[in-house]
Amino acid sequence: MSIQHFRVALIPFFAAFCLPVFAHPETLVKVKDAEDQLGARVGYIELDLNSGKILESFRPEERFPMMSTFKVLLCGAVLSRVDAGQEQLGRRIHYSQNDLVEYSPVTEKHLTDGMTVRELCSAAITMSDNTAANLLLTTIGGPKELTAFLHNMGDHVTRLDRWEPELNEAIPNDERDTTMPAAMATTLRKLLTGELLTLASRQQLIDWMEADKVAGPLLRSALPAGWFIADKSGAGERGSRGIIAALGPDGKPSRIVVIYTTGSQATMDERNRQIAEIGASLIKHW
Rank of each mutant, 00 (worst) to 15 (best):
R41V: 09
G142M: 02
D48R: 04
H156S: 11
T261I: 12
L219Q: 04
D269Y: 12
I229N: 02
R81G: 06
N98R: 15
I259K: 00
K109A: 10
A34N: 03
R271H: 07
V82P: 01
E277W: 06
T178L: 02
E270W: 07
T69L: 02
G263K: 06
T69P: 04
E102N: 10
I244C: 09
F6P: 07
R241G: 05
G248Q: 01
T267N: 12
M66Y: 04
W208R: 01
V21F: 05
K232N: 01
S68M: 00
K32R: 14
F13Q: 05
F6G: 06
N98G: 10
Q4S: 14
L188F: 14
K190D: 15
S221H: 12
A23G: 13
M153D: 04
L137H: 03
T178M: 03
I93P: 02
P253R: 08
A266H: 10
Y103H: 08
D250R: 14
D113E: 14
L120T: 04
I171R: 12
T116C: 07
D129H: 00
V101I: 10
L89A: 07
R63D: 03
L137F: 09
L218C: 05
P172Y: 11
S221A: 13
L167G: 05
E145G: 15
M209G: 03
Q97V: 15
L38I: 10
A245K: 00
R220F: 03
A183T: 12
A132P: 00
S96V: 11
D155R: 00
D269R: 11
A222Y: 09
M209R: 00
L47K: 04
K53H: 13
N134T: 04
M153W: 15
H285I: 04
E210G: 09
Y95E: 01
G43T: 01
F64L: 02
T116E: 10
N168T: 07
M1V: 05
T179A: 03
A280G: 12
I244W: 00
T138Y: 13
G154C: 06
S68P: 00
L38M: 11
L136Y: 00
G52Q: 06
L79K: 00
I283H: 05
L28P: 05
A34Q: 09
F22S: 15
V101W: 06
I3R: 09
V117L: 11
D174T: 05
P12D: 07
D99T: 09
K252L: 10
F70E: 02
